[in-house]
Amino acid sequence: MNPRHRSKKSQAKPIRKGLHPRNRHNQGYNFPTLVKSHPALARHVKPNAHGDLSIDFADPLAVKMLNAALLKHDYQLVDWDIPEGALCPPIPGRADYIHYMADLPGLDQPGIKLLDIGTGASGIYPLLACQIYGWKCVGSDINPESLANVAAMIDKNPSLQGRITLRRQQDKNHIFSGIIQPGEFFDLSVCNPPFHASPEEALKSSQLKTSNLALAPTLNFGGQGAELWCKGGEQLFLKKMVRESQVYSTQCRWFTSLVSKADNVKPIKKLIRKLGALDLREIEMKQGNKITRVLAWSFL
């Protein structure tokens, strides 16, 4: 079924605030159905304070089991798994990013090729892009263990084989260089950049979040090393990405990235304009009370 064409019955259902209209998670989570798809989720599902079935979203294992169930039930992907401590992405939000990118000019055609910068151990953007839109993808990462984990998942899912290629970034000082090959063209690049400047800053942020929620100090979505922090934090990473994107301006139609810190949007947009981008867009994705921003720019 073409994901752009939903049935009248589906359209009649109430849409969850903010999620993209094509997002399969607009109606929330059907836990009994998810448990049938992935029985290991069952022991984590309990009534919450309102009497509704839910999980403890502060429990990393519960979140991982929910992800595995969602990917199996909604995207027909089996045996999704990540190593202990790896970043565990929220599936509805990651799907939203892919859906909003599919709305960019020039991306509503067959044969789209996506580049994921920092694909991580989850490989979530290539997995979703393949299953939702049938795109071909390249996932890059500096961590060989992360790439090995994604490769193992590709091996277990025939629908992904031949559609996702993995490449290791050998130089931590580069983003596109060493990944985009001579004569190669991508329709889109996506990225969820590291947002802290040091391990200490990442830990402090985690402790602040958990203290506000009166929870034990744990990272409910995990994350380690290059997934969470880099020298200079998110802003320096994004500046490096934007400058390097100019070098590859004719080899990618749309460069895009999540921007988690609102204060970083203005200076990055200023740099993009300075470097001569012909199109620049700021896209807001709303998931409940949370607003996530994506910057998309093109030199073509």
Rank of each mutant, 00 (worst) to 15 (best):
T218C: 09
L147R: 00
L77C: 09
E234R: 05
M285I: 14
D96V: 04
P158D: 06
G18P: 05
L19D: 07
S249N: 13
Y29E: 11
L166D: 05
C130K: 02
P267T: 08
S205L: 01
P194Y: 02
H20Q: 11
L41H: 02
N2I: 06
L114V: 12
L41F: 01
Q161L: 10
N26Q: 14
R243H: 09
I55T: 11
R281Y: 07
I179Q: 01
L278V: 10
S189G: 10
F176T: 05
I291Y: 04
R16L: 12
F195H: 04
A58N: 15
I291L: 13
R6H: 10
V190H: 07
G232L: 07
A102D: 06
K240F: 04
S205R: 07
R43D: 14
D59E: 10
L70M: 08
A121C: 03
N143P: 02
H44V: 12
M1L: 12
V150K: 00
T292N: 14
G134S: 08
N264G: 14
E234A: 08
G223Q: 02
I164W: 00
R22F: 11
D263K: 12
D59K: 04
E84H: 02
D81F: 07
A49D: 09
M101P: 04
I268W: 03
I272Y: 00
P110M: 09
A202W: 01
F221Y: 09
R6D: 06
L41W: 01
L77G: 03
K8A: 14
I154K: 00
G28S: 13
I91E: 01
I268Q: 00
P199V: 07
P105T: 15
R94S: 07
C137V: 06
D103R: 05
E234Y: 03
F299D: 06
N192F: 01
L147H: 02
S298K: 09
F185A: 12
Q207E: 13
H73R: 15
S249T: 10
Y97N: 13
I91N: 01
G288R: 10
R163T: 11
T292Q: 13
H25Q: 15
A69K: 07
T250Q: 09
